[in-house]
């Protein structure tokens, strides 16, 4: 160990290109969103699209580079540990991102809405909308004209329950695939990863169906007061993370088809599996605190 030399990659064009792409994404998104609000047509959408395409190409190229380096054996055990720390802390940062929204949900439910309804030490805020009744889910908002509350909320025991089963099952199947990888039975890896991706796809499909139902039948929208706001921001960001995770699983699946990964050395696979379990755990929290309770 002590005599082992370090691996330091040579110069790379990806970081600066990725910064440009990120700038285009951010600037384009900002212009487009501002354009929507002021109802002017601008070039924001095009800039956003250019940024997205450039970023996609960069990610393919950059990850391609890393995969090639890994396949040609340039990485030491130490490098592997760096990747592990990197991924773990990245997932921790994601946990904190969701913590902000869960914190928001708890604050609103247990403090802000009851105070508006006249409870507790800050109950004077009830003077703002006299007669406002605190309830959760908040069906009648203080100002029903500006924020018309939902007529109904999602029944947790239909689509959400199904989605829970799908996502928990997918966490199992990805573990089965991991076991298969450790035993080097390639056909099983391909099979179980494919099952995982299909479960993920089904989850996303039902999530979309749920959103359509919420918007078209239940009156549960982003405008529907704080219940709709917390509902959509929590489930929406979770859905985005599932989408990202599905892409990651697909990449891993394609790499397995190409014969990548060895029973002893497959951190790329594990990183995606970790991420997938994280997404699953967040869903359990959502199912519990957003849908059931």
């Amino acid at each position: 160990m002590s005599s082992e030399a370090y691996y330091v990659p040579s110069q790379s064009r990806w970081p600066i290109l990725a910064s440009i792409a990120l700038f285009l994404l951010a600037y384009g998104a900002g212009s487009m969103i501002n354009g929507l609000s002021s109802e002017e047509s601008g070039s924001g959408g095009m800039i956003l699209l250019a940024g997205a395409v450039l970023m996609a190409l960069i990610l393919i190229g950059w990850f391609g580079n890393v995969i090639n380096e890994s396949m040609s054996g340039l990485y030491s055990e130490q490098m592997d540990r760096s990747f592990r720390w990197g991924m773990s802390w990245f997932i921790f940062s994601e946990v904190m991102f969701f913590a902000a929204f869960f914190g928001t949900l708890f604050y609103v439910r247990t403090l802000a809405v009851p105070w508006l309804g006249g409870e507790g030490e800050k109950g004077v805020s009830n003077m703002l909308w006299e007669g406002f009744q605190a309830q959760w889910p908040l069906m009648t908002t203080p100002d029903m004209e500006q924020f018309p509350g939902p007529q109904q909320v999602i029944d947790p025991w239909h689509l959400p329950l199904l989605n829970t089963v799908l996502l928990v099952a997918s966490s199992f199947t990805v573990t089965v695939a991991h076991k298969a990888l450790k035993n080097n039975s390639r056909n099983n890896i391909v099979l179980w990863l494919a099952v995982t991706v299909m479960l993920a796809g089904a989850f996303l499909f039902f999530q979309a169906a749920e959103y359509i139902e919420a918007y078209e039948e239940l009156g549960l929208t982003l405008h529907a007061g704080i219940y709709g706001a917390t509902f959509f921001v929590l489930t929406g960001f979770h859905g985005l993370h599932v989408t990202l995770g599905t892409f990651m699983l697909l990449v891993i699946w394609l790499r397995v088809l190409r014969g990548h990964f060895e029973p002893e050395n497959h951190f790329g696979f594990e990183a995606v599996a970790w991420y997938w379990h994280f997404v699953d755990v967040v869903w359990i929290g959502l199912f519990l605190f957003v849908y059931i309770l």
Partner: peptide, 14 residues
Amino acid sequence: HFGTSFFNAAGGGD
């Protein structure tokens, strides 16, 4: 931009 009411008491936010 998207009509939520996280920080607006009129929709139950704060």
